Simulated assay, not measured.
Amino acid sequence: MTSIIIDRALRATCQTFLHGNGPITPRVWMERMLAMPEIELAGDEYNVGPGIDLLQAQVAGLLGKPTALFFHKAVVGQQAVLFAHRERTGRRLVAVHPKSHIAADESDAVERLSDLRLVRIGPDDAPFTLADLQGVKEPLAAVVVELPLRNAGFRAPSWEDLVAMSAWCREQGIAFHLDGARLWETQPFYGRSLAEIAALADSAYVSLYKGLGAPGGALVVGEAAFLDTLKPWRSRMGGNLYTAFPYVLGGLYGLRHFLPRMGDYHAHAAALAEALSTRDAPWAADRVMCNSFRLVWPVAAPALANALERMARVEGIWCFGRVIPLPVRGHCCTEMVVGDATMAHEPDAIADRFARLLTVARG
Rank of each mutant, 00 (worst) to 15 (best):
L194W: 07
P66S: 10
R294H: 07
C169Q: 06
A214N: 05
G180Y: 11
A57H: 14
V206S: 03
L55Q: 11
L116S: 06
E45C: 08
P298G: 10
D352A: 14
W283Y: 05
G339R: 11
I102G: 00
G153D: 11
V76I: 14
M237L: 13
H266T: 11
L183T: 08
L118F: 05
G321S: 08
N306E: 13
L130R: 08
R150T: 13
V360F: 01
L69D: 04
G213Y: 12
P260S: 06
L259E: 06
L130P: 06
S3M: 03
E160F: 01
R170Q: 11
S158L: 05
R192C: 01
L118Y: 05
H257G: 00
W29Y: 13
H345L: 14
R88W: 06
R192E: 04
S114L: 06
G263R: 09
E160Y: 02
A284F: 12
E45M: 03
C332L: 05
G22E: 14
D340T: 14
V323Y: 10
S107K: 12
A68M: 01
K99L: 12
A273Q: 04
A303S: 08
K73L: 13
L93P: 02
A141I: 14
V220G: 06
A74P: 00
L149I: 05
A303F: 04
S100P: 01
F83P: 02
D264C: 06
K231L: 14
A152V: 10
L252D: 00
V136W: 10
E111M: 11
T243K: 02
K137Y: 00
E346H: 15
D280R: 14
V48E: 14
A270K: 11
P98E: 12
L200F: 09
P157F: 03
D348F: 09
T334W: 11
L178W: 02
G251R: 01
A305T: 12
P232H: 09
